[in-house]
Amino acid sequence: MGIVVQGLSKAFGSTTVLKDISFSIPKGETTVLLGASGAGKSTLMRMLNLLETPDAGTMNIAGMNFSFSEKTDEKQLNKQATSLRRKVGMVFQQYNLWPHMTVLQNLIEAPIVQGTPKQDAITRARELLDRVGLTEKAEAWPSSLSGGQQQRVAIARALMLSPDVLLFDEPTAALDPAITNQVVEVIKELSQSGITQVVVTHEVEFARKIASRVIYLEDGEIVEDGSAEHFKNPQTAEFKAYLEH
């Protein structure tokens, strides 16, 4: 139950952002989407939990099938998107923690809205905070935490729903290089647990540390797609140049 997409396209007005994107990711892999800014990698990842709607193509993710065309019924899609997002978690560049809620409240909010009893949610939240090394911070306000700590809270929050797939949108772009390793550790640990991860980044070093697969994009098209071996032996001149720059 991995991810299979076929023929995904997206244009904003007259600008084509993604052209006929197809790939498949087996379950449990940690895939890095690499590319220069403007290559379309963030848009592509936001399609995987339907924060962006593709103009065309099909998508199979977390056991749900989607097919997009001009006739896609927006209301129907919104409903499906809501259930999809409970299986496909997301971590943002700017963490996007809710600032007026404590760390614990940030974690338990979505599960409670979706019907989890409060006590169960709290128990699970404390387990996850242990796992990301923030046991002591349950009652803290997000603004009192460092960037690395906030990002780990955001990861724990996404894990509260036990997603099949976890998406990371430039998770280290706002972090000190030294702090980046905290996120690397968490992603590596998660990859042991069998969860499928997709990570957008433009930092090659970070990508090398976490990737089991890599997809390299340029101008909205996939240029290179393969195992982490491709970091050592790039198959295309473009990817080789990107790795060396």
Binding site: N49, L51, T82, S83, L84, R85, R86, G89, M90, F92, N96, L97, W98, E109, A110, V113, Q114, A154, R157, A158, M160, L161
Partner: peptide, 10 residues
């Protein structure tokens, strides 16, 4: 704030 909540299936 909106995006985080939507991404969590709210």
């Amino acid at each position: 704030d909106w995006e985080a909540a939507l991404a969590l299936g709210m």
